[in-house]
Amino acid sequence: MPANFLPPAPTHVLNPEGLPRFGKYAGAPDVIDWASLALPYQRSKLWQTLHHKHWHYVALATAEIFCGIAIVDVGWTNTAFAYVFDRQEGKLIASYSQDGLPGLTAKLKQQPAAGAAAQFQFLSNKIRFQHLPDRGQFQLQLQCGSFSIDALLNASLTAPSLLAIGEVQGGTVHATVKSPGMPLAGEVIVGGRSFSLQAGIGSYDHSNGFLARETSWRWASAHGMDVGFNLQAGYFGQHENALWLDGKLISLGAAQFEFDASQAMADWHIFTDDGLLDLHFRPEGFRAENKNLLIASSRYLQPIGLFSGWVRASLDEPRRQIEKLVGVTEDHYSKW
C-alpha cells in the first residue's frame, strides 16, 4: 500500500482499553462513542459535558445553487443553520439560523454513516438527516420558513469516507467522518422557485469530540465524482486533510491558507506542504454570521465559490488539473 493511501477504518474509535485509535482511515466506524474513554484523556463528567461538541453538516452543490446545512450540539446548548446560495445571482436567497433549547431541539445519533440520524426542530422549522439502509442513500429533509429541501444522496457507488481520530490542543480527543462526493436527487424550493438537485453533488461532515473553550479553524472542501478534498488548519491540525481521486482516498499533509480575513470576496490560495495540492479559490459570494451570547460567541465566514489548480496522488504522479470545482472555504472562531 502506498504510504499516503489509508488503512480501513476500525468499527470503534476506542480500543478495548478505552484508548483512542489515533490516525486517518478509509471508511467509517459503526459509532463515535466516548463513554469508555480512559485516562489520560478522560476528564470529569462536568468538563466533558461542557466541552463535548457534536455536529452534522451537509453540502449540496449544483450548477445553479449551493446549500449548506448544519445541526450543532455544543453540550450545554445547540443550534442549527441552513442557507441557499444562488450561484447565478451571487447571493443568498434563503437563510435560517436558530439557537435551540438544551436537550430538546437537537438530536444527533452517534452513528456517523450507517444508521446516521440528526434532527433539529424549533416550532414549525425542522431539519432532518438520516441514513436509509435499504436504499444505500442518505436523506435530507428541511422545512424552514419559506424554503424547503428534499434531497437524496446516493452512497452506493462512491469512494470511501475519511475517518480521522486525533488529539486537540486545549481539549482532549476528537473524531470526524467526511464523506466523498455523492450523486444527488431531489429539489430545493425557495418561495415559488424550484431548483432540481439532479446532476448535483452532495457531501457531509459528522464530527464528535471534546474541544477547547476557544476553538478556531480554516477549512476548505469541494467535491466532484472523480475528485474532491477536505482541508483544515487550526484546532485539529492536519488530521483530516485528505484527497479523493478516482475512487481512492489519499492522505494529505499540513494545509496552508493564504487569504485576507477582512475581505470576504478576496481570493484564497491553499496548498499542502507535501506537494500534492495547490489550489486558488475565487468566491462567488458568502455567508457570514457573528454571535455574542455573553457566555459564548462566534465569528463565521463561509465563502462559496470555485477552486482551480492541481492535485496529485503522489509526488511521482502527474498533476491533475482542477478547473472551477464548486465548494466552500471557511474562517471560523468559536468561544463555546
Rank of each mutant, 00 (worst) to 15 (best):
S146W: 02
S146K: 12
S146N: 15
F147K: 02
S148L: 07
S148F: 04
I149G: 06
A151C: 05
A151M: 03
L152T: 13
L152P: 01
L153Y: 02
N154E: 14
A155V: 09
L157G: 11
A159M: 10
A159W: 07
P160F: 06
S161I: 07
L162G: 04
L162E: 11
L163D: 09
L163E: 08
I165Q: 05
I165Y: 02
G166V: 02
E167W: 03
E167L: 12
E167V: 06
V168K: 00
T172P: 04
T172H: 05
V173M: 02
H174Q: 10
H174A: 04
T176G: 09
V177G: 02
P180I: 08
P180K: 03
G181M: 04
P183S: 05
G186D: 02
G186E: 00
E187Q: 13
V188Y: 05
V190S: 03
G191A: 11
G192N: 15
R193H: 12
F195I: 07
S196M: 01
L197E: 01
L197P: 01
Q198W: 11
G200P: 05
I201W: 00
I201A: 03
S203N: 13
S203F: 08
Y204C: 08
Y204G: 06
D205E: 03
D205L: 00
D205P: 02
H206Y: 14
S207N: 10
S207F: 03
G209K: 05
F210Y: 15
E214K: 15
E214A: 14
T215Q: 06
R218P: 00
W219M: 03
A220Q: 02
A220S: 09
S221P: 00
S221A: 14
A222D: 03
A222G: 04
H223R: 07
G224W: 07
V227G: 03
V227S: 11
V227A: 14
G228L: 12
L231I: 11
